[in-house]
Write a protein that binds this DNA or RNA. Structure first.
Lengths: 124, 124
DNA sequence: CTGACATTTCGACATTCGTCGAAATATGGA
DNA sequence: TCCATATTTCGACGAATGTCGAAATGTCAG
């Protein structure tokens, strides 16, 4: 990942409205949410949201899909992967224990402690 | 982590100079680097760098330690962990495969593919 | 084709942000 | 105490950014 792209992604996320949008869409999963619904959920003016969505898409954080007269936006998880890799590049010169916590944070955030479901569903 | 803190960290990183500083310090490890040396390495004016360092410290991304007349700055890895957790919160509603790539990216960035050292050091 | 709805584009505004020169502070050594 | 060095603070300037109203675009239904 290039420095410019990283800056674009970071500054795209560094704004309350856009951060909310991104996190909402992360929670929404691959199906995403139509622009109008995002605006309603977060209480943003449609035109303001439109600018923000443009910025997020242009930064590679979101994808957009037209469905009739609705446009559906979804988070792009790889955007985060790439950003993390860029930020942590060469973080531990042979001393993995230094950045191990970051690695574990990613796992914890993704799939909370497996929630004691140790009986059977774990294998899935 | 709170929304405000996340915004502070993201916008602190969303600027070429500060992003360079942070990545340099991530690579430098726990010992960090004196302000003057950072300025020299990245070609930044001392006063400009000082503002940037203040912002990074205030955002919780860096720590500073006085050593005589030198002030040593170091990256704070947990700042990244917390940020990642905040961004990915509830990312996969029961579908771990969605954000697994992010998790693996963190591992890959931290400790590159173990570099074929499969002979012995691997167990460490 | 016309009307209704979802979304975007345009233009203007105030605010925020990064940078720089100059001056101030803090620390160590003579 | 006085000087040199490392770093920070102050003040001002131009550039970039977020928000909003109004108008335009695109899409579906009749």
């Amino acid at each position: 990942m290039e420095s410019n792209a990283a800056i674009d992604r970071l500054s795209a996320l560094a704004q309350p409205g856009r951060l909310d949008v991104f996190r909402l869409l992360v929670r929404a999963g691959p199906d995403g949410i139509p622009a109008g619904e995002i605006a309603a959920t977060l209480g943003l003016a449609p035109n303001t949201l439109s600018s923000q969505l443009t910025i997020l898409v242009h930064a590679g954080l979101l994808t957009s899909t037209r469905e009739g007269r609705v446009i559906r936006y979804a988070a792009r998880p790889e955007a985060l992967s790439e950003l993390i890799v860029y930020l942590m590049e060469d973080c531990c010169g042979g001393r993995p224990e230094i950045c191990r916590p970051v690695e574990e944070a990613a796992r914890a955030a993704c799939c909370p402690p497996a929630k004691a479901k140790s009986r059977k569903a774990v294998r899935a």
